[in-house]
Design a binder for these strands. Structure first.
Length: 801
DNA sequence: TAAATGACTTTTTTT
DNA sequence: AAGTCATTTA
């Protein structure tokens, strides 16, 4: 049988790519930066690239792909599986930064003094810890709002500023003094200590501790540097300094790092993300190959034109020349309504109408908004019209009270040091351990420098009343029983036992109110999902045993594949959006925030609440940077739409139970008229409703008849936004050195006198070694390049002898 | 100690 | 509007 390798079905996927996409997907070695415009097929390129690497013989174990949402990761994995037609993709490390690092830390956390079965604290848990800390320090939580304190701490962590550095940094201290919050440094320290004592990491710790791990233990760093020969990062513009440092460390050995980003879509600076990382990337490595993807395949010309005109108001961008071959499509429709409810009604009606008239399905529509609170009105109206919908984000399943309660039991069982979980359940269901007792327990714990759990076990020593002591002992016995199950039972079995013995399920079952019933069902659903998870894990570990060689970490995990600890580890990182559509494929209208919509596309998009103080948010109009980020967010919203786009705003809406009036968003006036259909902007109101700007601009009602007058207000009119329909010249490919076959050695054993080869400088001899284990620097005399100092963390050295 | 009442805050955006 | 938190009442 003839078998042409180049024609093997595995490589068919390369056929549909344009020139630049092809270059990006097949570029094998060296640092690669893909600057991708919206809708330019970057996901396609990323997945193709991974499939191609594997087709070229790279082992799945050696590929690490990092994304920002579980959804993006799952989608990528699925696509690759589909492309390759086998289950090789299973062994890829694809996931969010948080989930991948959590997985690695699960095998390494003990080195940092955490239990390997550490708990992950979500934002709520973090806040609870902060409240506890504030209470102990006797600080006023009105002044030190847990919310604000947490975001300050989070910012510090994301910028790699530890408690010590925070306390010592002059400028930070000045800032805190000015805000009249001098205790922040101490709170930060106490918060970290408390989390550590609880055996818990918060979301930011998953990144920070990963960095500390790599930076402190050279052997760990080398292990993962060697493992991850190819690293891919999606949405690179959203990385923050910790993420940047980690990936820099990991990629230092092979430099096969590929980042994909669009500076125009950077919308996470509140999380510490900085576009600097994109600019820095080109300076960090020699021979960075930059490929631009500038053809938009997604949207109509009108949509892209509007998006481009608006984003041009931002200064300081990476120059890109977007173009498209797509049709003009319909103009963008501007809708004004009287109230937020009318807005929602209009959207529901339009969905109904479009579906009938233009044969769309429910799933072709997305309703996007700036804040989660806006979803309610849409929800009510869709329900009223019997249109099936699904809300992504908002309160996730795992954040519901009854679910959190149940999970708290699971958490205490696995990690009784977890005080947040312990406090949650110690008297739920009521068992006679009241507030006073709990406070006493906590005081004793801090007096004795130990955990509450420890005190509970030795409760007899602390003079509790007989009844209370009984209750405490019963509780301890119960938890210990649960812990005894961990040995040999799966997560599901343990959870079932917990449900039975705590009367949690029974209690909810006897609650016959509507909400009680719902809660009962939620608990059932949780148990079902645990069962489902256990079954899948079992399947996975079985297949793994059939011959595939597993790395150390994975064997560890495979062993406890179905353990409760493993289950808990992943659950905190799940968001609502990750739940698969259980009801078949689900022909439903999708509702989500614009942030959550990034990376997605929909045939028809409605953007609601395009009003001043909502979009841009009233909290983000104080500096140019903030406003530009809101504008990028607007750009993201607009570019989600493939065919049709509606932008709506209401004259009045409810906020905290009060009626407020907002002006139309400034972004509306930034859109060139030629792409806009304002005929809906009359809405329900009379022709004279709306503000002056609105009235003057309404079509057929005058508008500016004096160009200079308009120019005075807006500056010169936007340049005619004519998109090119042809591709600019394709990128040139630069050869990367180190050459493909240069493999650096493990430099942990490097000593004076060693002969080495450097990827770029050639051959040389080690003159001197200095620095601590994790920060070793070699001074090397090169034959042709003179003396160089080389940091071994980033070494591209091969030991010759 | 537990339930009931009333004052008070909250909303950017996410892992 | 709805949830949280503290104070009162049983």
């Amino acid at each position: 049988m003839l078998n042409f390798v180049p024609c093997s079905p595995m490589r068919n996927y390369l056929k549909g790519l344009n020139e630049n996409q092809y270059l990006a997907a097949t570029h094998m070695n060296g640092p690669l930066m893909i600057v991708a415009g919206a809708g330019s097929g970057k996901t396609k390129v990323l997945t193709t690239r991974i499939a191609h690497l594997m087709a070229e013989g790279v082992d799945a174990f050696n590929i690490l792909a990092l994304t920002f949402t579980n959804k993006a990761a799952a989608e990528m994995k699925e696509r690759i599986e589909h492309m390759l037609g086998n289950n090789e993709a299973r062994n890829l490390y694809i996931g969010t930064f948080h989930s991948v690092f959590a997985r690695i830390l699960r095998g390494e956390a003990h080195r940092l003094g955490y239990p390997n079965s550490f708990t992950i604290y979500d934002t709520d848990d973090s806040r609870t810890v902060i409240k506890q800390v504030l209470k102990e320090m006797q600080l006023d939580d009105k002044h030190y709002k847990p919310n604000t304190v947490h975001s300050r701490i989070s910012q510090a962590k994301n910028a790699l500023v530890g408690p010590l550095e925070y306390a010592q940094d002059y400028y930070i201290q000045q800032e805190d003094m000015r805000a009249n919050k001098p205790a922040l440094a101490k709170i930060y320290k106490a918060y970290c200590d408390r989390c550590f004592k609880n055996g818990a990491m918060d979301f930011d710790d998953l990144l920070l501790k990963m960095y500390e791990l790599l930076n402190t233990f050279p052997e760990v760093l080398h292990k993962y540097q060697k493992k991850f020969k190819y690293i891919l990062i999606d949405e690179y513009q959203d990385t923050n300094p910790v993420q940047y440092q980690i990936t820099k460390l990991l990629a230092a050995m092979y430099e096969n790092i590929c980042v994909v980003g669009d500076d125009a879509q950077s919308i996470y600076s509140f999380r510490g993300a900085t576009i600097e990382n994109i600019l820095q990337f080109q300076k960090d490595y020699d021979d960075v190959q930059v490929i631009k993807l500038e053809q938009n395949y997604r949207s109509t010309r009108n949509i892209i034109s509007v998006a481009n005109s608006v984003i041009q108001k931002n200064i300081g961008q990476i120059p890109k020349q977007l173009w498209t071959e797509n049709n003009d499509g319909e103009k963008i429709k501007l809708v004004r309504t009287l109230t937020d409810n009318d807005e929602a009604k209009f959207v529901s009606n339009t969905i109904q109408e479009e579906r009938l008239r233009n044969h769309f399905n429910n799933k072709d529509f997305a309703i996007l908004y700036r804040t989660n609170a806006q979803s309610r009105a849409f929800e009510e109206n869709l329900r009223r019209m019997g249109i099936p919908y699904r809300i992504y984000g908002g309160l996730s399943f795992y954040q519901r009270k009854e679910i959190k309660d149940f999970i708290a039991y699971l958490r205490v069982t696995v990690n009784p040091a977890d005080e947040v979980a312990l406090e949650r359940i110690i008297n739920y269901p009521v068992r006679g351990i009241g507030k006073t007792t709990i406070e006493k327990l906590q005081t004793q714990a801090s007096n004795n420098k130990t955990t509450v759990w420890e005190i509970l076990q030795r409760a007899g020593e602390f003079g509790f009343r007989a009844g209370t002591l009984d209750a405490i002992n019963n509780f301890v016995v119960m938890i210990k029983y649960f812990q005894s199950l961990l040995e040999d039972k799966s997560a599901y079995d343990v959870a079932m036992q917990i449900g039975k013995h705590t009367n949690l399920v029974k209690e909810l079952f006897s609650d016959k109110t509507q909400e009680g019933l719902q809660r009962y069902e939620n608990i059932q659903e949780l148990l079902n999902s645990i069962k489902e998870w256990v079954d899948t894990q079992q399947d996975l570990s079985q297949i793994d045993e059939e011959g595939t060689v597993l790395e150390e970490v994975d064997t560890e995990i495979a062993k406890n594949a179905t353990s409760l600890a493993a289950y808990l580890q992943q659950i905190t990182l799940l968001t609502d959006a990750d739940e698969k559509d259980k009801d078949g494929t689900g022909d439903m209208v999708k509702l989500m925030t614009i942030h959550a919509a990034k990376g997605l596309e929909f045939p028809v998009v409605f953007v609601g609440g395009v009003e001043e103080s909502i979009f841009p948010s009233g909290l983000s109009i104080n500096t140019r940077e903030e406003l530009e980020e809101e504008r990028r967010l607007f750009y993201v919203a607009v570019t989600r739409a493939k065919q049709k786009l509606w932008l709506s705003y209401a004259n009045t809406r409810y906020r905290f139970g009060n009626i407020i009036n907002n002006e139309p968003s400034r972004f509306i006036s930034e859109m060139p008229d030629e792409f806009i259909d304002r005929s809906y902007a009359g809405g329900n109101s009379s022709n004279f409703a709306g503000n002056a700007f609105e009235r003057m601009n309404r079509s057929g009602f005058g508008g500016y008849n004096n160009a200079t007058q308009a120019e005075k207000r807006y500056g010169p009119p936007p340049k005619k936004n004519v998109l090119p329909t042809q591709a600019p010249k394709a990128n040139k490919i630069v050869e990367h050195r180190p050459s493909a076959d240069f493999v650096p050695s493990d430099t942990s054993t490097l000593q004076e006198g060693h002969k080495v080869e450097h990827a770029k400088f050639g051959f040389g001899t080690v003159q001197k070694m200095e620095g601590a284990a994790h920060n070793r620097i070699a001074t090397v005399m090169f034959e042709n390049n003179g003396e160089k100092k080389i940091m071994l963390n980033y070494a591209k050295l091969r030991i010759i002898g």
